[in-house]
Amino acid sequence: MDQWYTLADLPTLVTQLLHHYPPPHIYALEGELGTGKTTLVTHLCRQLGVREPISSPTYSIVNEYTGREGTIYHLDCYRLKDVEEAIDAGLEELLGGAPIAIGGAVFIEWPAVIEPLLPPGVVFLRLYHDPAGEGRRRIHVTTG
């Protein structure tokens, strides 16, 4: 999947993503600052039934939400220095399968530092700014 979208297109885009890559999954979001990673996670969580407030886990590293089908974890690895710090924070256990085995989802912003911990089958969502500056973004989706 590779397409351009605007903020107004997000509900449709999220419906398409969840249709093609439904939970349980780990979704890794990559992109420069301001490409809309947290905004996309917010829309994904809403469509998965999260009713509570959704915020970036930049300082807490992990936020946990309750969705219709299971627990949803939202990770932000931007502040992690290395994979050892991720292991010390318990991310290895979190990515070990339990949340996805029970119908939940894991959304990871800035996943590069924990890539050695990612299991096979991760859905990579790469976000890009519109070089023309027209407020659009591009999403490129692959699985690993």
Rank of each mutant, 00 (worst) to 15 (best):
I72T: 05
V113C: 01
D88R: 08
G34A: 13
E93L: 11
F124V: 10
T39S: 06
E52L: 01
Q47C: 07
I72R: 09
V50R: 06
L48W: 12
R51P: 10
W110S: 04
Y27T: 08
L94M: 10
P53E: 06
G34C: 11
V113N: 01
E30G: 15
K37M: 08
A101P: 00
A89R: 03
H19V: 01
S56A: 06
G34K: 12
I87V: 15
V62Q: 02
C77Q: 01
A28P: 03
L17Q: 04
P22R: 15
E115M: 03
L117G: 11
C77A: 05
E64D: 00
L18E: 02
G96V: 05
V122D: 13
A105Q: 14
P119I: 14
Y27K: 15
Y73V: 05
L118V: 05
R68P: 00
P120A: 15
R51A: 15
I87Y: 03
A86W: 01
P119T: 15
E32V: 02
E92H: 14
A101V: 00
L48N: 05
A28D: 04
L44I: 14
E30R: 14
L125S: 07
N63F: 00
A28S: 04
H20W: 13
E93S: 10
E52Q: 06
H43V: 07
R79V: 12
L91S: 08
V62G: 01
